[in-house]
C-alpha cells in the first residue's frame, strides 16, 4: 500500500507513495488510452476464448462457438494439395516411363515426389540413399540387378514384390539348401570354382572338381560363367557385388544354407502414379539400364 505521497523536490512531481529500500517512485501518469488498450486486449482475449477452442473440461474441452478445429484446416489443406497434384499424377499414370525420364518437367516432379515416397516406404530396407543394407537388402544405386534394371523391370518388381505370398505375380526364386544335398567337401569345391569367376581361386584342383558340380547344380540359375540369369532371379557371381558377402566363407555359408530376401508387393498399397515415380527415381539413382 502506498504509505507516503510526497512532492519530489527536484521535479516538483508527486511520488506514488511506493518506496523500496529508500528508492521512491515518481508518479508519471500513463496516458488513459494506454490503459484502454489494456482493457481492449482483455476483452479481445475473452471473445477469442468464446469463439475458439479454449477451456479444458473433465471429458474433452470447450470447442468454441465457431466450431473451428485445426484438424479440419489440415484436412482441407491436404485435399487442396491433392487436387493441385491431380493433373500431374494423371500425366504420370498415362505417360510411358521412358518418356517421363526424358521430359524435364515430369522428371522433376517424379524425382521430388518419389524421393519422399522412397524415404517413407523403401528406405527401411534399402537405405535412405538406396545404398542397401548388409544382410541381403540390395543396393539400388549400383549397376548390378538380380531381376533387371530397366524401367519396366523395376516397376514390375515394385508392383509385385519378391518371394511374397501376397501377390501371384511376385518374382519367385528358390535356391536349395545344398548343405543337405552336397557334402561339405563338394560345397568347398564349388565355392572355389565360384571364386575363380573373379580370379580369386587359390586351389586350381578344387576349382576343377567344383566345375563339374557347378555344371550339374548351379548353371541353370547362375549361368556358365556365373553371369547370372535374370529371368529366374539368379544373381551374377562374376562381379564385385555380393549381396551376402563375397569372401570364401560367406560363399560357402550361402551355398550351404541360402538366405533369400522378401519384398512385399506395393501395388494396391501405393498409388499407381507413385509406383511409376518410384521406378523412375530408382532408375536415376545411378544403375538404371
Amino acid at each position: 500500500m502506498p504509505t507516503k505521497i510526497e512532492k519530489d523536490a527536484l521535479t516538483g512531481k508527486l511520488t506514488t507513495g511506493h518506496e523500496w529500500d529508500g528508492i521512491k517512485e515518481l508518479n508519471t501518469p500513463l496516458p488513459k488510452w494506454w490503459l484502454y488498450i489494456l482493457y481492449a486486449t482483455i476483452i479481445w482475449a475473452a471473445v477469442w476464448a468464446l469463439l475458439f477452442p479454449s477451456f479444458p473440461g473433465l471429458s474433452g474441452y470447450f470447442g468454441g462457438v465457431l466450431g473451428w478445429t485445426k484438424r479440419e484446416d489440415i484436412a482441407r489443406e491436404v485435399a487442396a494439395v491433392a487436387d493441385a497434384r491431380a493433373p500431374m499424377f494423371e500425366r504420370i499414370r498415362t505417360t510411358d516411363l521412358e518418356e517421363i525420364r526424358r521430359d524435364p518437367t515430369l522428371l522433376r516432379f517424379a524425382m521430388a515426389g518419389a524421393r519422399q515416397a522412397f524415404a517413407d516406404n523403401c528406405a527401411p530396407c534399402h537405405g535412405s540413399g538406396a545404398e542397401g543394407r548388409p544382410g541381403g537388402f540390395p543396393a539400388l544405386i549400383d549397376d548390378d540387378w538380380i531381376w533387371g534394371g530397366t524401367l519396366d523391370d523395376i516397376v514390375f518388381t515394385i508392383r509385385h514384390g519378391i518371394r511374397n505370398a501376397l501377390d501371384d505375380d511376385a518374382r519367385q526364386s528358390q535356391m536349395p539348401a545344398y548343405g543337405q544335398i552336397l557334402s561339405r567337401r563338394e560345397i568347398e569345391d564349388v565355392a572355389e570354382h565360384v571364386l575363380s569367376f573373379t580370379g580369386r581361386a587359390t586351389d586350381a584342383e578344387a576349382a576343377k572338381r567344383g566345375e563339374a558340380i557347378y555344371a550339374e547344380h548351379c548353371v541353370a540359375c547362375h549361368g556358365e560363367q556365373g553371369e547370372g540369369v535374370r529371368a529366374v532371379g539368379g544373381p551374377r557371381l562374376n562381379d564385385a557385388i555380393w549381396l551376402y558377402g563375397g569372401s570364401r566363407d560367406q560363399i560357402i555359408a550361402q551355398i550351404t544354407n541360402p538366405r533369400m530376401g522378401v519384398m512385399p508387393p506395393w501395388q494396391g498399397r501405393l498409388d499407381e502414379a507413385i509406383i511409376r515415380m518410384l521406378a523412375v527415381y530408382v532408375h536415376t539413382l545411378g544403375g538404371g539400364e
Binding site: 505521497i5 512532492k7 523536490a9 508527486l14 501518469p29 500513463l30 488513459k32 494506454w34
Partner: peptide
C-alpha cells in the same frame, strides 16, 4: 532539466492530498 539548487533536499514535503491518478488524460 533545469535544477533549482536552493531547494532543501533534506525535508521532502509530505502532502495530505489524495494520491494523484496513475493515468492521465492527454
Amino acid at each position: 532539466m533545469r535544477v533549482d539548487r536552493n531547494i532543501n533536499l533534506a525535508e521532502p514535503r509530505v502532502t495530505a492530498t489524495p494520491p494523484a491518478r496513475l493515468y492521465a488524460n492527454r
